[in-house]
Structures are given as structure tokens and as C-alpha cells.
Amino acid sequence: MFILHLLAASFAMGAQAQTAKRPLNVFVVDIASAAPALDAFAKESAVFEQALSPSPWCPAARATLLTGQPPEIHGLYVPSGRLPASLPTLAEKLKDAGFDTAAFVEAGAWPTTWGLERGFDVFEVGASTHAVAAWLQGRTGRRFFLYVQRPAEQGVIDQLKALGRWDDTLAALTAACGKSGREGLYEAALRVPLLLRRPPSSGERIDALVGLSDLAPTALEAAGVPAAGMEFSGRSLLPLLKNPSARWREAVFASARSRPGLVLDQRSVRTRRWKLHWYLYKDAFELYDLKNDPGEERDLSRQRPDIVKTLSFQLLRNLELNRPHAPGPDRP
């Protein structure tokens, strides 16, 4: 599902010429039905051309967006999972900093037992764009964090402009996951759009490897809220807005499970050129050269054991750094 995230932060000038925090807004919307708005948004945003989801299952990816942690850490990769009490969410962090917080989502955005509603003053399922607009109208003079899924995003943007808040906004548009007819961690399931607007923005195109775990630290930095007590597997993207060619990460990782159970039995590591898949149930690796085979049709694991060795070491290291959190058994 394609979705829109608008992250907004406002900064007021103080007597000592200091910049105070601006309101932070987050919108989530299905951009498949909003191509014109996406095109307009892209003209004034930085476009990240290699953005990846950590999971082909959208609810698990949304949990990463709201916690800054991969599925192995937040544990929300089965319907019966529960967010650990020790793991704070972006909404909780911003609420503690004095932000008004609200989420307007569709049914099925994530299982209601997960606890991702923590930190939201308002959490509504199936709300209309009118409900979102009404909530925004009540935020005059307030810093806020707003997460919206699927209401017409152009209407929300128009509302922000009418209220004089759009130019106080750091806006990010992304998707929880892609769409693929193949089982596994293939590019079609993991590649997502990611656009970031921080006024003034000039429409840069950025080729760095980035992911959904980067959005929470980006939001906190833009809002001027310290990240103390909240750890991330990602990092703020704001430095890339200043220097799009800055040295960034060398690889991104993804995981999923192929059948009910507690084990994330599908994993992948992706560099700018190579993609290594590991499937426990197959007891096998798959290796693809994304430069020459972007559709991942030709497995080169036998032809390039050197690349398999290098990437499997990175995969093993990532497993060690992100020891899985056990979410509990599936419900029948």
C-alpha cells in the first residue's frame, strides 16, 4: 500500500535570535489514488530514489516507521504481537515534548492489540478528511504531530496552507511497502517512494540507500526534540538535504516470515548493486545483480560465491545486532 507521511515542524524566532520548534505533522495516505498531488509534491521535495521497506508486510513496516526499529526489535511481525513497554514510539516522544498528537487510519492499518496507538491523544479508524481538517483547525498556536492514512492528502495540504501552517512543515511522503506477486523479499515488495520537504526545498534527487527506520529520527530532529531514551536502527535524513552526495550507509536489510510461527525465516541484505536473499525453509541463498537484473530473475549465488560470502557476513552481523524480540504465539 502506498502511503503518505507528512512530518511538520515549526520554529519561531526568539528574542536572542534562536529558532524555536515548529509543529510537526505526519500524514499517511494511499498515493496510488493521488498521482497529481504526488507530482506536485515532488516538485518541491527531495526525492529519495532508493528507499526500502524493512518488510513486505505493511503493518510490520508501519511499526518500524513509528518506532525507528526493525521488526526483529519491535517484535510486531505477527498479528498477536505486542509492542514492548520499554520501546517508546514517535508519538509518545512528541507528546512528552508538548505536541498534540493524532492518528487517523483505515481499518487494518495494524492489529489493534499491538499498542502502536500509544502516545496519540486522538486515534480514529475510518475517519474522513473532514475529521482531519476539524482536528487541524483546533491546533492554532499548538505544536502537533498528525499521522493520517488514506484521506485525500491534497485536501489536508490545502487545509495546512489555509491555516498558514504549510510553510512551517517538514513533509515526508512514503509507503509502508510495495506490491509483488512473488513470495519473498523481492524489490517490488520492498521499494517504496520517499519524498521529503523541508522549506525551503528545491526538489533534489537523492540516490542514498534509505529506509522507513530513518523517518522517526528525522522527525525528532526536525521538531527539535531530543532523542534521549529512544534508540533507532535508522538515522536522520536531514543531513542528506544539506548534502545529497554525503557518504551514507552501505546496505539495508529486510525480513519476513513465510508461514505462521515465531521465526523470521526470510532475510535479505541489499547494497547499491547486489541483493542477497536467505531463506531458512529453503536452506539456500539467492543472489541478484540489481544493476543488470533489477527484476531479480537470475540467481547468481553459484557464479559469485565471493559476493555471497561478503554479504552473508553482513547479514550475520545484522542478525547479531538485532536479536529478535519474541512476540508470542499466533492466535488461532
Rank of each mutant, 00 (worst) to 15 (best):
V105R: 12
E117V: 11
R118W: 05
L163H: 10
P111Y: 01
E72Y: 00
L66F: 09
A162R: 15
R62F: 11
L160C: 12
V148S: 15
L116Q: 06
R118A: 13
F120I: 03
A134D: 09
S55D: 01
Q149V: 07
L136A: 06
Q149L: 08
E49L: 14
P79H: 11
G155T: 05
E44L: 04
T64S: 15
Q154R: 15
F123E: 00
F41S: 05
A46M: 08
G81M: 03
V47C: 13
L160Y: 03
F104H: 09
G138L: 07
I73S: 12
L160T: 04
G115N: 07
L94K: 06
S45C: 08
A133Y: 00
Q69G: 06
G119N: 12
Q69N: 14
R143K: 14
A97P: 01
A162E: 10
D96T: 14
F145S: 01
Q50A: 14
E72L: 01
L87G: 08
P88L: 11
A127G: 12
V105Q: 11
T101Q: 04
R139A: 06
L87K: 09
T113G: 13
F123W: 13
A133F: 00
P71N: 04
D158K: 07
G115A: 09
Y77N: 07
A60D: 03
D167G: 02
G108T: 03
S53D: 07
Q137W: 00
P84G: 06
V47D: 09
A46D: 13
A60I: 11
L52H: 13
I157A: 09
A60F: 08
P79L: 09
V122E: 05
A91L: 04
I157E: 03
I73F: 06
G141K: 12
A61M: 11
A152H: 07
V122I: 13
S86V: 13
L116C: 08
I73T: 14
F48G: 04
S80Y: 07
Q50M: 07
F99I: 02
A85V: 12
T129A: 14
P79F: 09
